[in-house]
Design a protein around this nucleic acid. Structure first.
Length: 266
DNA sequence: TCCCAGGCAAGGC
DNA sequence: GCCTTGCATGGG
């Protein structure tokens, strides 16, 4: 039970920005420190000074990758800053990072997220967790549809029930997704999983596969789109237009925009 | 009470 | 292909 500290410069790393930008559901923000749960692991984060943040964890390698510490977010922000609506959004959420989360956890979590609100999403996910650990495929195979409904999943119980069995039977090759571009991968996931539509697929691709040529369009992004282009159209057309604007940095742009819009309207 | 929440599936056209 | 509708549940 060794503890390892990772020291991170706060220039492009702000705990609250990272945790509150909608990519992760299992965390606690406290005054003195915050806690992040990922799969069966846990990290404690706190600011050591105005310049440095500490990440306390047992599996240092896992969380270095998880928090995307190899990536230079300063460079990314420099590339984005002159694109539409980026200046204010980047200033507001300057410490955001796109986490590299577990594929299974993201699939299940974002199926639950559909047409749901964040407090309730968190509550349902926590009920599925076992001693703070995200359930495995085999854990979820033990649930009947009624068991899943008792957790509060409502009509999403069928989606989880079916998707878990599709994954168990290897009816979909999740590794293959790495080799596809955003559009191909989105189609592949939506065609092969239950409860995964275009929006949920984009979230899985962004937060687990770290694909940046996707753009999850939800209710907040619809508002942002209206601000930028002063019209409203189908989610699919908005997604296409936003990706043509932000290109291979779309995933980053989406998170800055989402966080900014949602925090201002909270 | 009605509206909304990080939408999706199914059916009609 | 696009458009409409029904859908569980809980918070504001």
């Amino acid at each position: 039970m060794t503890r390892n500290d990772i020291i991170v410069p706060r220039k492009d790393f702000e705990i609250n920005h990272i945790l509150d930008c909608g990519q992760i559901f299992r965390y606690e923000i406290n005054n003195s420190h915050s806690i992040v749960y990922a799969l069966d692991k846990k990290a404690i984060l706190y600011n050591k000074s105005k310049d440095e943040c500490i990440i306390e964890c047992e599996d240092k390698e896992y969380f270095q990758n998880f928090f995307d510490l190899e990536c230079d977010y300063g460079k990314i922000k420099n590339k984005l800053i002159d694109l539409p609506f980026m200046k204010d959004a980047i200033k507001f959420g300057h410490g955001i990072r796109i986490l590299r989360q577990d594929i299974f956890e993201m699939i299940i979590s974002f199926i639950i997220s559909a047409n749901n609100n964040i407090p309730r999403i968190k509550s349902i996910i926590n009920k599925l967790c076992i001693n703070g650990r995200f359930p495995s495929i085999d854990n979820l195979l033990d649930y009947t549809i009624d068991d899943l409904k008792k957790v509060g999943l409502g009509y999403r119980a069928d989606y989880i029930y079916n998707t878990v069995r599709i994954l168990k039977n290897n009816d979909i090759n999740l590794n293959e997704v790495h080799n596809l571009d955003g559009n191909q991968a989105n189609k592949y996931l939506t065609q092969n999983l239950k409860g995964v539509g275009p929006k949920v697929a984009d979230c899985i691709l962004l937060f687990a596969y770290h694909k940046m040529d996707v753009f999850p369009v939800d209710t907040w992004i619809r508002k942002v789109y209206k601000d930028i282009y002063s019209d409203i159209t189908s989610d699919k057309q908005m997604r296409t237009r936003l990706i043509s604007t932000y290109k291979d940095l779309s995933g980053f742009a989406q998170q800055y925009l989402f966080y900014h819009k949602r925090e201002l309207n909270k």
